[in-house]
Design a protein around this nucleic acid. Structure first.
Lengths: 155, 155
DNA sequence: TTGCAAGTTCAAGTGAGGTTTAGATCAAGG
DNA sequence: CCTTGATCTAAACCTCACTTGAACTTGCAA
């Protein structure tokens, strides 16, 4: 609507709070697309502000960029999410949050039964069996741990 | 009590479900300590099974190895946690879980108000303001995002 | 004593999610 | 036209939490 329908990368960065370098990175990953000026500079659609914001929200919910890309790719013709898309996506995100909360609550309960007992004793503690369940993908690459959860022996 | 008070790295690995390489890595990071045989092989105390298990639990709760090391370092004389230590630590961990759950619940609520509205519009959505609050340290290094949360402009 | 699984070190690799650097080019105002 | 600031590319670098590989050495059982 404004005559500046196309915005340069710096403005997209300023509007979303994401670094310019990150936006270029997202483009390389296929999360956003840019038009180019004759000189080769990127020009984004105003709607890409929403698109990038969606990326940020989804990240907060623990989605990887790959998952986010998959979600965005489901939108026909590379559109920016509209109302109906958003309903579908946010419903899915909510399910994910529910799962995370449930996992944390289970862990908390188990931790509660352990406070004061000082057991830390594998068979009895329950927290050890909870490890695979409680997995909320803590910081860092745990590629492998997930594959062998459950084989924990007794003390 | 068993005559094998000292266990080799392979057994510690088998008992905790952690890879041998990971245990060596933990030792390098100061999370566990090992005695050495004359030949230079590591021998761990049986109690280190508990120590490593503690590392795993704390990781599930989102602590970095550095934080875990700090927690373990507070134990006098490099002991393995006993009952009292465990009470103190697990109480702290529980507070952490509570915080994580609360953050997720806030996010869920905001998401709920957005389902169907399709807004994704920064000023109105609320989810954008929630970003710093909801931070549950999703997968991957988000060192920087945390530092600039809140500077998000309007669409 | 031998055989071999399990152990050792050190350096380099992995993968996510970016940032930094360097040097060149573009766009807009004066 | 010229300067200034934004943008460009490519490649290198960063953290975290590990794994992998190469090249040897130990420890234990038969």
């Amino acid at each position: 609507m404004h005559r500046t329908d196309l915005i340069p990368i710096g403005e997209l960065a300023a509007r979303t709070g994401v670094a310019v370098s990150a936006i270029r990175f997202y483009e390389a990953k296929g999360l956003v697309e840019a038009l180019r000026t004759r000189g080769g500079q990127r020009r984004f659609l105003r709607a890409d502000i929403r698109r990038v914001s969606f990326i940020l929200i989804a990240q907060q919910l623990g989605l990887s960029l790959e998952e986010i890309a998959a979600e965005l790719a489901r939108l026909p013709a590379g559109r920016t999410p509209n109302g109906a898309d958003w309903t579908r996506i946010s419903t899915a995100l909510r399910a994910r949050i529910d799962g995370q909360i449930a996992a944390l609550e289970r862990t908390r309960e188990l931790l509660g039964t352990c406070i004061g007992c000082g057991c830390l004793s594998l068979k009895k503690c329950g927290l050890y069996n909870a490890q695979d369940k409680a997995a909320q993908r803590g910081a860092g690459p745990r590629y492998v741990l997930g594959d062998r959860a459950g084989e924990i022996a007794e003390v």
